[in-house]
């Protein structure tokens, strides 16, 4: 079980690979979730912020659950703030390092 989770942690970022994201600049977005995927291999939401629809890459569902971010916290229509790095080749995609939903802030890495 521990082994499975450990493997999951490193395996899930298919095509949202680390090198693609510009880690020299942290971007903070606040907006409304228009589409929510609490799913494998990693969670992903669509966020309306700054007059644009963003794709925000979150963490594997098990990790989000363990850290207290439930499916309900990122349901459609919720207001959230995400902080992370933008994909160099897809300027409307952000890899979130942390997310604030309601009163709680959850680290995603």
């Amino acid at each position: 079980m521990g082994g499975t989770l450990l493997f999951l942690n490193v395996a899930v970022y298919a095509h949202h690979g680390w090198s693609e994201y510009d880690q020299t600049k942290t971007v903070k977005l606040t907006g409304k979730i228009t589409q929510s995927g609490y799913e494998h291999p990693h969670g992903v939401i669509k966020l309306n912020a700054d007059g644009k629809s963003w794709t925000v890459v979150l963490a594997p569902p098990f990790r989000m659950e363990n850290r207290g971010l439930s499916k309900n916290d990122i349901a459609n229509g919720s207001q959230v703030t995400v902080e992370g790095y933008i994909n160099r080749s897809q300027p409307d995609e952000l890899r979130a390092e942390r997310i604030t939903a309601g009163s709680k802030t959850v680290e995603l890495r």
Partner: peptide
């Protein structure tokens, strides 16, 4: 089911190995 079941994806990854 692969996306939304909690256990399936990590189990399948393990079986892949």
């Amino acid at each position: 089911v692969m996306k939304h079941s909690s256990w399936l994806y990590p189990t399948v990854e393990t079986m892949h190995i």
